[in-house]
Design a protein around this nucleic acid. Structure first.
Lengths: 207, 207
DNA sequence: GTCTATAGGTGGATAGAC
DNA sequence: GTCTATCCACCTATAGAC
């Protein structure tokens, strides 16, 4: 790999991420990507094997660090505050890392939120497997922490409530810059994050 | 219109709904639809104008009755129980009609949940406008009822919490038959509905 | 209203020169 | 690693016969 500038492979990934997020996986062609990245048409086949492998790599490149950060945040909270965390602390570890990848935060990718939404709505079974690999260990880990925090809840309740929380987060990410009335746009990202954590925590504590 | 059997137009809509829900809008061609519906290739152009108009009709045919039912349910609850409803009652009017279109209920369309998810993740601006038309008056109506139920909340809080609720519902619909561990599948549809309403109601009542 | 045939375009992939 | 040229499958839309 001869590094001069971002390198062909990285440049393809960056451009593909933007285009996929904006237009969807199917309406973006390899031609669109390679033209926008100013690389040769054949470069995608050479570096990734084909369009699908490129898609998978685009997703994993963003999902992996977010989910890693979630686990790190939970581990750290348990180390600092003890094994029996408050619901708010657990959900902050889950929600904050995702939001920090959104535009508005310095390291946020403009495309991350939309890309993430597309990934979840994507019907291809290969993408579903990718999601399963990424999320199953994560969900198990957070479920354990949540059961410790709310020992009166059944495992099923924790599971479904985590699903609802995930849905609220995901839909918020996917639509946070659309369908917002003028009077609500002044709510900034940190406020929205707080609102979401408060909402989900209260939901978990229901009954 | 000479009605013998479901009629060409309806048959196209039914088949398109299934295929779109299962495979996504872009990977289903007019050829796939007309072959599966056993009608001529040119029938889509003749009856709808083109692929996009078919897509819009497929979505609206399902969304309109659900959103109408939501408004009817809210009106009825206010007539029966008085203007100041409980949060649970308002959210039931919002959530129940959507769930009754899901498989498991007698009149439920097998494809509705997935179709609905696709529709929300769809990037085309025309679909976004369709969603706006469908949801803006609905959201306004429910916001008013929720502000009456929770007068201490700011309008912004009600707005964001309704968005979170919508996200929980939508993600649940999109993934309720995927990513479910074996031990959780025994939770039936009505139980899941109750859990969602309880979760969201508690979220609304936070603080 | 239904059908065939086809125009006119775009897609992913790849062989083979450099 | 990069590039050109090209293959071939597939798409939507439509003209025009029935």
């Amino acid at each position: 790999m001869n590094e001069a500038g971002p390198g062909t492979k990285t440049r393809i990934l960056d451009v593909a991420e933007d285009l996929f997020a904006e237009q969807g996986l199917d309406r973006v062609s390899i031609r669109d990507i390679t033209e926008a990245a100013a690389v040769n048409l054949a470069a995608v086949s050479y570096h990734f094997g084909g369009k699908f492998e490129l898609i998978a790599e685009v997703f994993e490149r963003r999902l992996r660090p977010v989910n890693d950060a979630r686990l790190v945040a939970l581990d750290r909270a348990e180390k600092e505050l003890g094994l029996k965390l408050k619901v708010e602390e657990i959900l902050t570890a889950f929600i904050q890392p995702a939001i920090e990848c959104c535009p508005g935060h310095e390291k946020g990718s403009k495309a991350f939120a939309k890309l993430f939404g597309r990934c979840l709505a994507e019907p291809r079974p290969e993408i579903e497997n990718l999601l399963r690999r990424q999320f199953e260990p994560l969900v198990e880990r957070f479920e354990k922490a949540l059961i410790r925090a709310l020992p009166h809840l059944s495992r099923a309740d924790v599971f479904w409530r985590l699903k609802f929380t995930f849905g609220a987060l995901h839909h918020w990410m996917l639509t946070k810059d659309r369908f917002i009335p003028a009077w609500a746009v002044k709510t900034d990202l940190d406020q929205q994050t707080e609102k979401l954590i408060a909402f989900a925590s209260a939901g978990f504590k229901a009954q």
